Simulated assay, not measured.
Amino acid sequence: MIPAARRGSPGADRRGTHRRGAGHASCHHGEILQGVFLDAAGRRCAGLVTLPMSGPGSRAEFTRRPGTPPERLTVRPGDRTKAARAAALAVEECARRCGERPCGGELRVSGDIPVGLGMGSSTSDVIAVVRAVAASYGLRLPPAAVARLAVRAELACDPLMLGARPVLFAQREGRVLEVLGHRLPPLVVVGCALGGGAPVDTLSLPAPVHDDHDVRAFERLRVLLRRAVATGDAALLGRVATASARHGQRLLRHPEFDALVGIARRLGAVGVQIAHSGSVAGLLLDPAAPGLRHRVRGCVRALESDGIPTTRTFTTFPAAPGLPDPADLPNFPTTKESPSGPAHRGGHRPTGPDTPRRPARLPAL
């Protein structure tokens, strides 16, 4: 059961009025599975399962000004249009829950998620903002309410408000179609960026059309992914992710896709995953297989030899007995990144023909 909003104490002034709040949200590393699925009523829904990633994220600070009109809302940086919408919607929601009038305030957003790679940068901003506004009212909104506000703010959102729990999520409706399990199987991910890390012009892509055959294929992958999560089967998850990435090639047409799959096959990776709305990708390895460090190094060398820039190696598990220490893996980030970071250099402008096609600052990943 999802908990109701709870009162907290952050940002309280001497009179007990909550005025300031802070929020944070993480990112993801693209999708494991994305397509069209059937909900409990048999209705078709666009859905996805993301690959969680710790490290980069968005931070927001909100100071509300009781007694000011709600339209008096300032946002820094000024180009965060989705964050601004999220703040206004969250103020309206939280004021209603507290029996108060909506008011204006000041919002500041920062982060270190590169834009355009398909890592959920806009959703991370929006969720951090909603959490900051809620904290300024002394509330903690339940995930379902955060998801609903996020969809209203940006039309579609990623399931970052749900943490690392693997779910099939209807991104345009902000609802969970299925909880697949408690956690993903242990994986080591060797990250990279296709297309040199240039933003994907998602607005120029044709709208995907899925027939009954496609829906049946996605439903079969859903069943396999459910089984992979239930049994901790990294190899089966890799098969699902690769099949989903191959299906996404119909629209994305990454020229490096065959090379990526070839590297995975040669070096014993269980599969590949690719963001369906960006250029970030990963080779998926089973940490229980022998020679892990050697295989990770081989993947990094092979990617760079084929002109595919590597980003970072990360895992779906913390350090634990019986599993390798993530910090011992090659290409694993060992230094703490700057909180300000090279965040959102393009703001939330949609990528399009006029978007600068420079490579993303990949070390920031």
Rank of each mutant, 00 (worst) to 15 (best):
P142D: 08
G163L: 07
G78M: 03
V167H: 02
K82A: 09
E154R: 04
A156F: 11
A150R: 02
T68P: 00
R76Y: 03
V151T: 10
G78C: 11
R72Q: 12
M119P: 00
V133Y: 07
V146D: 12
G120S: 15
P70F: 02
M161R: 08
E106I: 01
G116E: 06
A88V: 03
G138E: 13
R108S: 14
A60E: 11
L117N: 07
T81A: 15
P77F: 07
L162A: 15
A128L: 09
T74D: 10
P70I: 06
I113V: 15
P142E: 09
C98G: 13
V167N: 04
G163C: 13
L149G: 05
A83M: 03
A86P: 03
V129I: 06
S110V: 07
D158P: 00
A60L: 05
G163Q: 06
A84P: 02
G104P: 01
A88T: 11
G78A: 14
P77A: 15
E61A: 14
V126I: 08
F169R: 11
V146A: 04
V75T: 09
L168M: 00
L117P: 01
A164Q: 13
G78F: 03
L107N: 15
R96K: 14
R165M: 09
R72L: 12
L139G: 04
V167L: 03
A153Y: 06
G120T: 11
V75R: 08
T81N: 11
P166L: 04
D125I: 04
L141T: 04
D158V: 10
R72W: 05
R97P: 06
L160T: 13
V151H: 11
A153E: 11
G99R: 09
A164P: 10
T68G: 04
G104W: 02
V109T: 15
A84S: 13
D79M: 13
R65T: 11
R108A: 14
S110M: 13
A156K: 09
E154F: 08
Y137N: 07
E93V: 02
G67V: 11
S121C: 01
F62D: 05
L73T: 11
V126Y: 04
E92I: 01
S124R: 01
R80E: 12
S136L: 12
A128S: 15
I113H: 05
L117W: 02
E61P: 00
R165H: 07
P159Y: 06
A144H: 00
L141S: 06
I113D: 06
A83T: 08
A147Y: 04
V115M: 10
F169G: 04
R64P: 05
A145G: 05
M119H: 02
A90L: 08
T68L: 01
R131Y: 12
V130T: 14
V130D: 10
T74N: 05
R65Y: 01
P159T: 14
R59F: 06
A150T: 13
R131A: 13
M119W: 01
T63C: 08
P166I: 03
I127T: 14
P142W: 09
S122K: 11
L168G: 00
G111Y: 04
A83D: 15
D125L: 03
P66K: 00
V91D: 12
A86Y: 03
G163Y: 05
A87K: 08
L139K: 08
R108P: 00
A135T: 07
V151R: 05
G105N: 05
A88R: 09
P77C: 12
L107P: 01
P69T: 08
